[in-house]
Design a protein around this nucleic acid. Structure first.
Lengths: 347, 347
DNA sequence: TCATTTATAGAAAAGGTTTTCTATAACTAT
DNA sequence: ATAGTTATAGAAAACCTTTTCTATAAATGA
């Protein structure tokens, strides 16, 4: 049993002017005499009138709304990106429709349709599903509506991408491990994600470049579900490996959760980073600063990723720049306490 | 330069019927001959027509959209609640507008207005600002639009509330510490939040009930900002205290982040939960399962909080139940490794 | 056979704005 | 004075739907 909202007509009646005039006062896009303006403003105030964005959106064909597709909301990686988007968007007086796709391609396409129906002005998709990119879904979407993809870059796909240079990030991290004297480096990844694939291929290339043997047995894979599961599975996997003598002195993990899981395993077995296993993570999420010891990791500046995506989509909306661009952001190795120089004698 | 969207008129033209008929095929709310229906469906398919929700919303005065106000998106507490809301909402074919108020009252009211302008069907506010509740803002809002508040309960305020029974939760946690033999219990809270106030008053009552002295010096306060800052500040604060001999053997922290910060302090000083300080957290966020040792904490079942809020708001929207209700959810003490029986001889 | 119902479908109104078009009065410039 | 601006404001069209009202033909019932 909610009150009825005042309309522009109500305001016009009270102020004894036409709705046209009210609209003009509201939008300040046409001269109105000070006296009438005052009358109108008083009426607006009195009725606590709020314009109906549906009607406005319908006629102007824009809604000051950006749709965001994200695979998860609880993951700190994504929430940081979203915060970045949000901060920029807010400044530009936009609002966002946030859709949690749960990392499922069918949800992702359904929700993109939903956003389209709701006439959002643009869509930002975070970590879009590879199959949708490859199938041309996003290229088709981009023809209907300004679209920016964060990560998920695929060569040859005609879309606007913003992404971190994970390849360089991975390479630098591995280089650091070598510099510390490590020669036997394991690689820990989740089951399927474009970014894991990229990192793995960099890992392989790196090992080859440095004349190190690639032992398939040192490429560890967890069934990544949510963050907690990822931690738990990494922990169990590493425990099993460490118990029987790992056969490696350093571990590159594809994200901080996996790294923390590995760290947990080390701790629980009474081993240590110092003597047994150096661990490097990826993402520099809050967890990497809270873990004990704190994680060495690769910072992706996720917030900036979000800000740039938002900025880019605004450019496209305003059609200042209709070109298709791929924007690469630098990563940064953050050295903390989970990586140690390999002692002579260890192997 | 985006393609123009097909309208219902385009479909009608292609199928050689009236728009009325197309609408009927779309909404299945009126009989249409099979032959015509087929023609229309083909036209829809061919034009890949998607109805314009703005127009539909305008005339039906409902948008199948729920607005969510949250103080933070990165905080795991809130994201779990949001996930709960989302899960229920999705089932009911609603979409959500998620607004990050950053815990600022002025943003919160501004964004509520924004949601109103966008004709959402209902608003769920997570941890609403106390000053807005007290000032009557939410009571006024609830008259304009179905509204449900998660937490922030204030006596006498005529709003629909869903909340955890934090009082019982706090009491149970403290009781457990006593059961372990602790007599000197400190209380760690953030600067200002309704929930901290509640917990503190329970703490005071509990101490009195059990004939324990309340020493003001054992009520510790951190300047809670974001999660990372909370952890860091708790860590530093506890380090300082522990160094000079804490004067207490157990600590009740108002949330898991504070608890983890305290745990960090214990670890870094080479002390232990076993011998020096039992710590109990609140919320049972993922972090409590990842920390070493794992945290004893109070589970609030945040997901369920979200689900119930969503369910409640649907009821209100459908006007099945226009009563004002306060729904209290049980909490549950989760015993893990950060609390230990007090050894005789310690004090 | 005539009146009534039923199935089907179109015309037009309604929803709340913005925008274009038109109108009037008051200036300005010749 | 006369024509051309300028400032101001209203009427009406447009945006894309759903819904109500009206209409026709076929089916049913008496």
């Amino acid at each position: 049993m909610t009150e009825k909202r005042a309309t522009i007509q109500d305001v016009a009646n009270l102020a004894k002017v036409s709705i046209t005039t009210v609209s003009r006062v509201l939008n300040k896009n046409y001269p109105v005499k000070d006296a009438t303006k005052k009358k109108v403003e008083e009426a607006i105030e009195r009725l606590s009138y709020k314009p109906n964005m549906l009607a406005r959106g319908l006629i102007q064909n824009k809604t000051q709304t950006i749709g965001i597709l994200t695979p998860s909301i609880e993951n700190l990686f994504f929430s940081e990106v979203i915060k970045g988007i949000d901060a920029y968007i807010k400044k530009e007086r936009y609002t966002s429709f946030l859709c949690n796709t749960e990392g499922k391609a069918n949800y992702e396409s359904l929700m993109a349709d939903n956003l389209l129906e709701r006439s959002v002005d643009g869509i930002i998709s975070i970590d879009p599903q590879t199959e949708l990119i490859r199938s041309g879904f996003y290229e088709a979407l981009a023809k209907k509506i300004p679209t920016v993809l964060i990560n998920g870059y695929n060569k040859g796909v005609q879309c606007n991408f913003i992404l971190n240079d994970q390849e360089v990030g991975t390479y630098e991290a591995l280089k650091y491990l070598i510099k510390l004297g490590h020669r036997t480096i394991a690689f820990l990844r989740g089951k399927r994600s474009h970014s894991y694939d990229i990192k793995e291929s960099v890992y392989r290339k790196f090992m080859k470049d440095n004349g190190l043997e690639i032992i398939e047995d040192r490429i560890l894979v967890v069934n990544s579900g949510n963050d907690l599961e990822t931690v738990q599975q990494s922990r169990e996997l590493l425990k099993k490996r460490l118990k029987k003598g790992a056969g490696f002195t350093a571990l590159f993990a594809c994200n901080d959760w996996m790294a923390v899981g590995a760290l947990n395993a080390v701790n629980r077995l009474g081993l240590s980073v110092k003597n047994d296993l150096s661990i490097i993570g990826f993402d520099n999420t809050i967890i990497s600063q809270i873990s004990e010891p704190q994680l060495t990791t690769v910072d992706q500046n996720m917030n900036r990723l979000g800000v740039l995506a938002a900025k880019r989509i605004k450019e496209i909306i305003k059609e200042k720049d209709t070109e298709i661009k791929k924007i690469l952001l630098d990563t940064r190795l953050v050295i903390r306490k989970s990586t140690r120089e390999l002692k002579q004698g260890n192997k």
